[in-house]
Amino acid sequence: MPFHYFGKVSFVPYTKVAEFADYLKNGKLMGTRCKNCREISFPPRADCLSCLSDEFEWFECSGKGRLHTYTIIFAAPTGFDDIAPYSLGVLDLDDGGRLLGWINIPEEEITIGMRLQAVPKIFEEVPEIKLYYSLEKANTT
């Protein structure tokens, strides 16, 4: 599956880590691990940040972590005005790395440090396949 299925609006149709979108469609959130030095990366990378090796493998990421920071976007860019306002959070993942995504809980319940889980999702409102993940209360799907 091409990478442009990932995201409400896609800017990047081609990448060496396009398989990420296939996994996401099957409900799996995947990160990359360098085969040479074992460095873990989320978001995925085809080339290791630590040693620049291009040999990588996929590992399944639990998506669980702690909310590091967040914002609520009121002034939205093109393609997102229909869903504004929306909450965006940065999650420190338990498995290593960080993830940015929509927070799917009421604004007033959002607190820094809270446990959240990134959960793979498919947009249901649009005819074509569009994948994303959202930050939900931990241990729910």
């Binding site: 990932f6 995201g7 609006v9 990047v12 978001p43 976007i73 939205a76 860019p77 940015l100």
Partner: peptide, 11 residues
């Protein structure tokens, strides 16, 4: 980063 962040409507 348009690959992993802009797809969520970051500004």
């Amino acid at each position: 980063d348009v690959q992993w962040e802009s797809i969520f409507g970051t500004t």
